[in-house]
Design a protein around this nucleic acid. Structure first.
Length: 459
RNA sequence: GGCGACGUGGCCGAGUGGUUAGGCAGAGGCCUGCAAAGCCUUGCACAGGGGUUCGAUUCCCCUCGUCGCCUCCA
């Protein structure tokens, strides 16, 4: 069974599931008011890797990740741009999913939208009011955190401790709130703002309510795993939990949070304006490079992501693709029926089960590259190398890292140059052969010798 | 102020009380007609100062520095 760090316990513990062989997980998705940045990319990749690994391990995974499509930021941005907020949200949702597709993140099994759950949120808020856990003020409905057992579990601080500092933040809704930490469940609409009906007045839901409602609706009480970025632990997840606790419902069994993407040692964030969008990364680089960077660091550690780390990963990817090409050249009959090397697979599972030790897996992937190349250099007939190749391919698949071993589509004229080069080489006319190689290179291709003649691939 | 994390070789990034993480970049070699790819070899690395220990980068203490959260935030 996989063991994962649980934020609520501050310890690595086995991921106990409600039902054996089934994992229900909820990962907080984006608020669609702008293009996703590398931070969103990291959590998406981390949880995608976990999900794929669980699936590979034979678990049945139910993966839910929401789209927050109503939020102050969306309204603000729509007003700024003078357009309809629903259209804006829809546009950024599309951008979100195309970016996710590009980095190879599987679509969630369900992607509930906040706007589709407003009625249920109103119902939940009513229940909270009936339980005296929430109250109405002139500007909205608030949850009374003092009514909640163990508030501060995920913040790792008691309510009192939280209140002692806090810097110079403006406390939202101060004046009407019973306690400064009380948070808004329902916001009354100001003129011109979108509004849904409620027993207390027209308005819109607060951010923390949607995830409670949607996770419980789609995954049920006591679902297995709830995840997101480290900065969601508090207040977002804390407040989700608070609502569930106040209702007396069993919430997430395990809390998992990933570390930040950093730039020059500082958290990448919209407010610091030091972010790179996922869209820019995808346009400028091989999208697989980001997955490799994520695999190479532990999910709870911060990771520096800059142009140079991405380029380094792209170069590392070349090494993987080189082997994939080499493997593709092998007569399939030699590899047929090869079972993945059991030792390698056992090591892989032990690492991954140990709080998702992907750095070890990354090292293993490259270690296998060396082993396989060495065996191939030694002219192994497939007996030893077959299982290693099978293991390598399985591991890559289990973590969602694609490698390309197929030949590139080479234009006729380039192939003609390669053929002429082979003739020149045959005749030992080296100067001619080299000139042809330069010509091929100038056209954007690489000409490499191989036992079967000149091989051409994209430079 | 409270809570938490961290400081590893040119860069990224794991880990461990005594044995090679890994990747990128660099150097040398093998292979090659020359290359490329591949293979081999290679790099006072663990912020500083104490302490515990036969032995600490790894444990404890202190100092310095950095970062995160404390209701915008993945």
């Amino acid at each position: 069974m996989i063991r994962l760090y649980d934020t609520a316990l501050s310890a690595v513990t086995p991921l106990e599931t409600r039902e054996a062989g089934k994992v229900s997980m909820y990962v907080c998705g984006p608020t669609v008011y702008g293009p996703p940045h590398l931070g969103h990319g990291r959590f998406s990749l981390v949880f995608d890797i976990l999900r794929r690994y669980l699936l590979w391990s034979g678990s049945e995974v139910s993966y839910v990740s929401n789209i927050t499509d109503i939020d102050d930021k969306i309204l603000q941005r729509a007003t700024q741009e003078g357009r309809d907020w629903t259209e804006l949200a829809r546009e950024y949702e599309q951008i979100w999913y195309s970016a996710m597709d590009a980095i190879g993140v599987m679509r969630p099994d369900h992607d509930p939208h906040a706007t589709q759950y407003v009625e249920q949120m109103v119902q939940l808020i009513s229940d909270l009011i009936h339980k005296n856990a929430a109250y109405v003020t002139p500007d909205g409905v608030y949850l009374s955190v003092e009514q909640v057992d163990g508030y501060g579990l995920l913040a790792r601080q008691s309510l009192d401790e939280m209140m002692t500092g806090g810097g110079d933040r403006v406390i939202v809704g101060e004046g009407h709130k019973h306690h400064p930490a009380d948070f808004v469940l329902w916001k009354f609409a100001k003129p011109g703002e979108p509004a849904w009906p409620s027993p207390w007045g027209e308005g819109r839901p607060g951010w923390h309510t949607e995830c409670v409602v949607m996770s419980l609706d789609l995954l049920g009480d006591g679902f297995d795993l709830h995840g997101g970025g480290m900065d969601l632990a508090f207040p977002h997840h804390e407040n989700e939990r608070a609502q569930a606790v106040a209702l007396g419902r069993s919430f997430a069994g395990h809390w998992m949070h990933n570390g930040f993407v950093e730039v020059g040692g500082e958290k990448m964030s919209k407010s610091l304006n030091n972010f790179t969008t996922l869209v820019d990364l995808i346009e400028a680089h091989d999208p697989r490079a980001y997955r490799l960077v994520v695999l190479g660091s532990h999910y709870r550690s911060p990771v520096e992501v800059t142009d140079s780390t991405i380029v380094a990963a792209e170069n590392a990817l070349d090494r993987l693709d080189s082997l994939a090409r080499r493997v593709a050249q092998i007569d399939p009959a030699e590899l047929a029926g090869a079972e993945p090397d059991t030792q390698a697979m056992r090591a892989f599972q032990e690492q991954m089960n140990n709080d998702l030790d992907t750095p070890a897996t990354s090292a293993q992937i490259f270690g296998l590259v060396t082993d396989i190349n060495r065996a191939l250099d030694a002219g192994d007939g497939g007996r030893i190398v077959g299982p290693l190749i099978a293991a390598w391919q399985q591991i890559l698949e289990a973590v969602g890292l694609e490698v390309f071993g197929h030949a590139d589509q080479v234009p006729e004229e380039i192939l003609a140059l390669a053929a002429r080069r082979d003739q020149a080489r045959e005749a030992k006319e080296w100067a001619t052969a080299d000139a042809l190689r330069d010509q091929i290179h100038a056209a954007g291709w690489l000409a490499e010798d191989s036992p079967t003649g000149t091989q051409v691939r994209l430079a």
